[in-house]
Computed example of a mutant assay.
Amino acid sequence: MPELTCGSRTWTVTEGSNLLDALNAAGLNVPYSCRAGSCHACLVRCLQGEPLDARPDALDASRRLQGWRLACQCSVAEDLCVAAFDPAREGLAAQIDGLDWLGDQVLRLRLTPERPLRYRAGQHVLLWNASGIARPYSLASLPGVDPWLEFHLDCRMPGAFCDGARELVVGDSLRLGPLHEGALHYEPDWQTRPLLLLAAGTGLAPLWGILREALRQGHTGPIRLLHFCRGESYLRGPLGELAGLHCNLSVELIDGKQTQSRLQSLRATSRQEVALICGGSAFVEDCAKRMFLAGIPRGQVSSDTFVIRKV
């Protein structure tokens, strides 16, 4: 059986064992969230040996050349020595400059990193707290405009990171892990095309940044934003203000109980429409199906799925 080494520990594992499971079964507490290669919380660096990687395309080429792998997507095929991502050494410190509740369920977190972070609207980044708990969150801020990094934390359900976030105060520090390029972004050549933004809950966060990026770049095509939420939209005021300033933007706030009926009535404005979707897995799947039935080509539909992990 192959030997697995991490730090000062070496032990044997069954060939073909999932690397994340093998590390955590040994008590090393490598964080994870989605187990699908999307959140990047389970980054490990291969120092010797090479695991079998089910999703080599989930990491960019430069990071792979440095030896980084996603433990959840790897299996142990030979002797392997790895080091888990260390936020204290490899992360970026960021100070909390803003904490406020948008309604009673969404915590808006604003951070200022110790050095500028280059990003674009739609990306997400790992947040590490002082207890070593990591979760991926989409950036709601707009680079070059907002002086901070903004995140919208859904605190409806209990969770290790959100429970800890309730105790944070302005001046505390978090660590930032690697940025990750998700599927959501704005392309300048979309400028005249219809744009459809579909968000559920805090799936609005990256689309809030992308919407403002589109308007900043002078998007002239019609933009429809539909926010499906329980109760009142947590960005009802800012969305209304933005719609009042831009005649090509329409905003529709939909009670979550009406999600299915509203999606069934949704129609594409043209075959050129670009659809961006963000929310839970069931919501994303329902929206993608609706876009297909509405005649929007698959290449014009992009989505990011939020995975809720309670522990």
Rank of each mutant, 00 (worst) to 15 (best):
M1N: 14
L4K: 04
G7R: 06
S8W: 13
W11D: 09
G16V: 03
S17K: 06
L20D: 00
L20E: 02
N29S: 14
H40M: 15
C42Q: 09
E50Y: 05
P51T: 01
D53E: 15
A54T: 13
R63K: 11
R63F: 12
Q73E: 07
S75F: 00
E78A: 15
L80G: 04
F85V: 08
P87D: 03
R89L: 12
R89A: 14
D97G: 15
D104H: 03
R108L: 12
L117Q: 14
A121V: 00
Q123K: 08
G132P: 10
A134S: 14
P136T: 04
Y137E: 04
L149R: 02
H152V: 01
R156T: 08
F161W: 07
R166E: 03
V170E: 01
S173D: 07
L174H: 01
R175E: 08
A183W: 05
L184N: 01
H185N: 06
Y186M: 03
Y186H: 06
D189W: 07
P194S: 00
A200R: 00
G203T: 02
G209Q: 01
I210Y: 05
L211F: 02
E213G: 11
A214V: 11
R216D: 08
P222N: 11
R224F: 06
L225T: 03
G231Q: 08
Y234P: 07
L235M: 11
A243R: 12
S250F: 10
S250P: 01
E252C: 05
D255G: 14
K257C: 12
Q258W: 09
Q264F: 11
S265M: 13
L266R: 07
A268Y: 04
V284Q: 01
E285I: 10
M291P: 03
G295W: 00
V307G: 01
I308D: 12
I308K: 10
